[in-house]
Design a protein around this nucleic acid. Structure first.
Lengths: 69, 69
DNA sequence: TAAAAATGTAAAGTTGACTTTGCATTAAGG
DNA sequence: CCTTAATGCAAAGTCAACTTTACATTTTTA
């Protein structure tokens, strides 16, 4: 799933490792999310959004999720 | 994880099965979420929130998630 | 430009989200 | 009442989220 994680992280000038530590996961997990290897869990999505003082919807892109239309 | 799913579902007067069909999961999954057996995935959380025309943060309770404070 | 920091990637393992089936109980309606 | 709809629960299975370790490549900086 697409997200603004990398963009936000660069704006804040922190490494994947720093973000990983801040939200309680491995650097590998951050890499995987940024490279769209898989989708974050709800709790991790919240922690990341919260770290950047944003909402989940502001960080993650749900435009390709069917549901509304 | 706590959520307003059951409350919202009753307000809209629909069964677990109807909600399940609408968001593309099994009734069992809705039951499990309502009974806090496990936490929804990010995409499912979005679909449910979207079904009720709410944001994820309005439907799910992140107050017990460490991160902000 | 050499060393250090940051990132990409990969493989194997654990756990949790979700399915499928199925049965038992409760609530609702004719 | 009797039937049907709605819900709770359980067990076994699949797959995706996340970890751990480890190495190779790119970027940064002294």
């Amino acid at each position: 799933m697409k997200s603004k994680i990398r963009k936000l992280r660069k704006q804040h000038r922190i490494s994947q490792e720093e973000l990983a530590l801040s939200v309680g996961v491995t650097r590998q997990t951050i890499t995987s999310l940024e490279c769209e290897k898989y989708t974050a869990s709800l709790v991790l999505a919240y922690k990341i959004a919260n770290f950047f003082n944003l909402t989940i919807e502001e960080v993650f892109d749900f435009s390709e999720v069917e549901g509304d239309n």
